[in-house]
Design a protein around this nucleic acid. Structure first.
Lengths: 200, 200
DNA sequence: CCACATCTGTAGCGAACGTTACATTTATGG
DNA sequence: CCATAAATGTAACGTTCGCTACAGATGTGG
């Protein structure tokens, strides 16, 4: 049977553009007109490919997390919990002030509170932030088994803490904090892990 | 000369209601219809009293910070930098999970990214967050003079750090973190200040 | 008691929103 | 080369948005 006319735009390239619009303006602040213009397509193409605005957001979030997966692996592969924290927070400071991206983190900027009818959006963002926290917690559980973190260290609390700090850095970055300021926050935050490391 | 018909609603009580709507739905997610209904007034009364939606937000923010001023004084009056940090973060954990309020912090929930035409809103929120950071920095400068913080401690960095952590806690609270989880984050965060305190 | 000033409720304004109908174009399968 | 299937561009749909004109109500100053 016939296959139909092939799509003329690159879905991934279009998603990169959509990602940036959501990142800069938030889910509700981003309009379909802005999105289609940035993506270089017309509304029917958007709706055919992604369903609706929320579907487009989910696709953009998938691409966002996929792009960060490699970096996250590198973070988690650091030798000690302290180094994991340092790589995580320093990398966060840098990426949230990268002039190639909008400031802050898409998973925070996307929208913490939304209007009636978009309640799923904050949920969706929170779920993806939780994934990172889960990875960190598991890594810290391992660090305890490795004898790298004190036996009394609370892996879940430390993961939550890192999650909170990086979210907070996102808030500050979005309101104009520069790279140096975020690195200061990262440096201060890491000290907690030095205190929680096993004596050697 | 004549004074005109007096206003029938209590502006402060109405602002409390508006505050809650902005808090829960964000600036863009809050509609005039929701606001007027919560405030118990009709649109013309809102516009006569506050100018427009953004003016209403500013008035609500003023009331928000005014309500927190007393608490902030109590935080800053703690005897040591460490205690300031503890009161600040524990109080934040509690207020951000207070069932009487929407979760999180209005100054974060209000809107980090907004659509074209509302660019002032994130700015306005950031300015008010910065005020708290300024107060903390000054308090830590004093703590250094008091010999309470190490001479090598960086007051600005510590203030930024506290600001980041409390913003991050707001993000987590808005996505459902409970009081216990936030208190864990607070407890971990405070350890930094113990390390930065002068030996005694 | 009258003239004036301001608030209130109704009702609706123009604009922008997310979304889609429709005709056209461009490919594939037979 | 024709029939089918899917994507495209134009144009517009209905709804909701922030906001306001207007008329009536309610107070104060003279």
């Amino acid at each position: 049977m016939a296959m139909g006319r092939p799509r003329e735009f690159d879905a991934d390239a279009a998603l990169d553009q959509a990602m940036e619009v959501f990142w800069r303006h938030g889910y509700e602040g981003a309009t379909i007109a802005q999105l289609t213009e940035a993506m270089g397509i017309n509304p029917p193409s958007l709706y055919a490919a992604f369903g609706n605005k929320e579907g487009l957001l989910k696709a953009a979030l998938d691409r966002y997390t996929a792009k960060r997966a490699a970096w996250m692996e590198e973070v988690l592969s650091a030798p000690t919990a302290r180094d994991v924290a340092e790589r995580m927070l320093m990398g966060t400071a840098d990426s949230q002030t990268d002039p190639d991206n909008p400031p802050g983190c898409l998973l925070v900027q996307g929208g913490l509170a939304c209007g009636t009818g978009s309640e799923n959006v904050p949920f969706e963002l929170a779920a993806r932030r939780a994934l990172t926290e889960d990875q960190l917690r598991e890594r810290f559980v391992r660090a305890k088994k490795d004898g790298d973190l004190k036996p009394t260290a609370d892996a879940a609390a430390l993961a939550r803490y890192l999650s909170a700090v990086s979210a907070g850095m996102g808030v500050m970055a979005s309101s104009g904090a520069d790279r140096e300021a975020l690195r200061q926050v990262a440096n201060v935050s890491v000290k907690v892990f030095e205190e929680q490391s096993a004596k050697r």
